[in-house]
C-alpha cells in the first residue's frame, strides 16, 4: 500500500479531503486491541472510534477509493444517516461501477432506501439491478427475497 496506493495522487487527495488518516504498526498495542492478525489491515471508524468497515490485503488505487466510499457509507448506514449513506453509495456506483464492492453498495443502498422510507420499492430495485448487472455476485443471492416484494 505504501509503495503504490498511498502515493497515488487521487487516493491521497481523497483521503486528505474526506477522512482523518492514522497509521499504526501492527506490532503496537492498538493492533492487539483491534485484533489485527495480518497486514495491511484497513479499518474505517466513526469519529467516536467505533469500527464500521474492515479490509485485509492489498488494494490498487482504483479499488481502494471505492472501498473507502463503502466504509464511509457504512458509517452513515450504521448510525441511521440513511440519506448520507445513499449519497456515498451513489458516488461509488457512479464513479466506480466496476469495483468489486459495487454489488454490496447496491444492496446497502436499497436497504438504506427502505429504512428511510419504509417503502419496499428500493429493495426490489436493488435486486433487479444486481440481477441485471452482477448476476454472479453473492449480494444478488442475498437480495433474492426482495424479488418477491
Amino acid at each position: 500500500m505504501g509503495a503504490v496506493t498511498y502515493p497515488d495522487e487521487k487516493v491521497a487527495d481523497f483521503v486528505m479531503q474526506r477522512m482523518v488518516p492514522v497509521q499504526v504498526g501492527a506490532n503496537m498495542p492498538l493492533a492487539a486491541e483491534f485484533k489485527v492478525k495480518w497486514t495491511p489491515t484497513i479499518v474505517v471508524l466513526d469519529y467516536y472510534g467505533k469500527e464500521h468497515h474492515r479490509t485485509v490485503g492489498f488494494f490498487a488505487p482504483e479499488e481502494f477509493i471505492p472501498n473507502l466510499l463503502l466504509g464511509m457509507g457504512k458509517v452513515d448506514f450504521d448510525t441511521d444517516l440513511f440519506g448520507n449513506a445513499i449519497h456515498q453509495f451513489d458516488i461509488l456506483l457512479e464513479e466506480y461501477p466496476k469495483s468489486g464492492v459495487a454489488p454490496e453498495a447496491i444492496y446497502l443502498r436499497g436497504v438504506s432506501g427502505y429504512k428511510s422510507t419504509h417503502d419496499a420499492k428500493p429493495l426490489k430495485e436493488a435486486y433487479e439491478k444486481l440481477k441485471a448487472e452482477y448476476p454472479q455476485s453473492e449480494w444478488t443471492m442475498r437480495a433474492l427475497p426482495y424479488s418477491l416484494l
Partner: peptide
C-alpha cells in the same frame, strides 16, 4: 501526499472537529 496521524486519540479529536471518519491503517513495520 497523505499526512498520517500516529495517535488515534488525536485523530478522533480531529475527526469530531472536522466531521470526518477515520482511516486506520495497520502496516507491517518490518
Amino acid at each position: 501526499m497523505i499526512t498520517w496521524e500516529s495517535d488515534l486519540t488525536k485523530a478522533l479529536g480531529r475527526g469530531q472537529a472536522e466531521k470526518k471518519p477515520i482511516l486506520l491503517d495497520f502496516f507491517n513495520p518490518g
